[in-house]
Amino acid sequence: MTVLDTPVLRASVASDAPALEVADVSWSADGRLIVDGVGLRVEPGTMTGLLGPNGSGKSSLLRTVAGTYRPSGGRVVLGGSDLGAMRRRDRARRVAVVEQESTTDVPLAVLDVVLLGRTPHRASSTDEALALDALETVGMRDLADRDWHTLSGGERQRVHLARAITQQPELLLLDEPTNHLDIHYQLALLTHVRSLGVTTLAALHDLNLAAAYCDQVVVLAGGRVAAAGAPSEVLVPDVVRSVFGVDADIHLNPRTGRPVLTFSPL
């Protein structure tokens, strides 16, 4: 698995960032195997995209890695320690999750939402500074006092990312974080994620976004790994055809040198 010489803006990788190892992980619901013996490795400080058609098990795998679902088999290891054997709160100090379109009914200020990231940690007087820094990182420092409900979809996802940053995780899990965002926010969100230098596993719908931002992509089909490797190796017509059932042509982005896919009508 080669890491592409990426032109994407990137902060220096935190030297102590751990690797994520998912070994033979399975999860089933109502007797049906949804995640079927998945193995993958995310190198320290890099971003891996989890791709696959609807129902291929991307979200379930993420939730199993996050510990929300208890795996029926296999191990999830972060920097040498078994996440599954950890207490929930200890795990939450190391792993942060941004889900798609997570919202609330209660009136909350943006800063309150970001401060939720400190929940697994001991309360401290520096919490607020951390939260404001995280808002600064995602470019929303000015909106700290705003009511959550007045934000746009893209702003909400950035607040969730700021919340995850405030959690100070070693591993960031993103479940289709760019859903329903306009193109500017899609690019902005993933650029922010890349700039963190945190080991990241992200389920993505958009193959081109994955190609543009990920060091590695893992393609799931029917709960199993269908292909894995650098975007330029994995996102080839054969794989796209067999997994998604569409014909694709691969080009190179003239500015970044990364693969761009165009799809032919069915």
Binding site: R88, R91, A92, E99, V113, L116, T119, A123
Partner: peptide
């Protein structure tokens, strides 16, 4: 109180924030 706050975005978010 902090645990209760963590429920604002639903069960699964609360769970990823370390709440049983």
């Amino acid at each position: 109180a902090r645990t209760l706050d963590a429920f604002a975005f639903g069960d699964s978010t609360a769970s990823t924030l370390g709440v049983n």
